[in-house]
């Protein structure tokens, strides 16, 4: 949690920041309002804009109660004194002021809205996928300016994190996960094993190992319920079918 991991993007590398409660180098001096503003609006306590590699674009959907619980957890961790690394971006991407324009083009602020016409499981899955797990950030192709192509949401991206491609997770059978059952998805997120016995790789394995494996089966089932209702989009990621 002390930061320093480089996140490679098509625009350069951005370094993860220290989010331990260290007063000087971490977020220890942040108020609840500072934390909520950062997560909901992508704005730092000093008023500067965050790069969207910090996925406030998804976290903005989180409920305030969950945000404050998350802050309470982070503040329960031991503080680590470690200065943040400067980002390695070229102009104009290194100019934070341009992010205000980026937000006008690509950012829509607002908490997740419960859909009465959908089941409890669907709503839970939608909340997890769209807000907390921010699946779209990797699994959706982007525009030239780095915004999500929302009409192709979850159809996969050749330019995922750390130079890895992120596959199509819509229920399209030839190119997505349309052939996967709910239990296939749950087992995959629990164990990293795909239906054919192959395994998750790279960043996705880290996400499973450090995240999804700890989710309850109820939450994983909700994710599966939601993903299976996405619009199927045919898109070959990597130039070939997912087989």
């Amino acid at each position: 949690m002390a930061g320093g991991r480089p996140i490679k993007t098509p625009f350069g590398s951005i370094y993860a920041t220290n989010i331990t409660p260290d007063i000087e180098t971490g977020i220890g001096a942040w108020s609840d309002a500072d934390f909520v503003r950062a997560m909901r609006e992508g704005i730092a306590p000093d008023g500067s804009h965050y790069y969207p590699v910090f996925p406030y674009t998804a976290f903005t959907r989180m409920r305030e109660r969950d945000l404050l619980d998350l802050k309470a957890y982070l503040f329960s961790l031991p503080p680590i004194r470690k200065k943040n690394e400067p980002n390695a971006l070229s102009p104009p991407f290194s100019w934070r002021s341009t992010l205000a324009l980026w937000k006008v083009l690509h950012f829509s602020e607002g908490e997740f809205e419960y859909r009465e016409d959908r089941s409890e499981a669907w709503n839970r899955g939608a909340y997890l996928v769209e807000a907390l797990a921010h699946c779209a950030e990797c699994h959706t192709p982007r525009t030239a300016t780095g915004g999500l192509l929302v009409d192709r949401a979850y159809a996969g991206s050749e330019e995922g994190p750390e130079g890895e491609s992120a596959p199509n997770i819509t229920p399209d059978k030839p190119t997505g996960v349309g052939a996967w059952s709910a239990s296939d998805m749950i087992w995959y997120l629990q164990s990293g094993f795909e239906p054919d016995g192959d395994t998750a790789q790279g960043v996705m394995w880290e996400v499973i190992e450090q995240g999804y494996q700890h989710l309850s089966e109820r939450d994983l089932d909700a994710i599966a319920v939601y993903l299976q209702t996405l619009k199927p989009i045919e898109q070959f990621v990597g130039g070939r079918s997912a087989d």
Partner: peptide, 12 residues
């Protein structure tokens, strides 16, 4: 990760 070339059709 270090020893396999990621196949184009590999999911992750």
């Amino acid at each position: 990760k270090p020893f396999r070339i990621k196949h184009a059709n590999h999911r992750h």
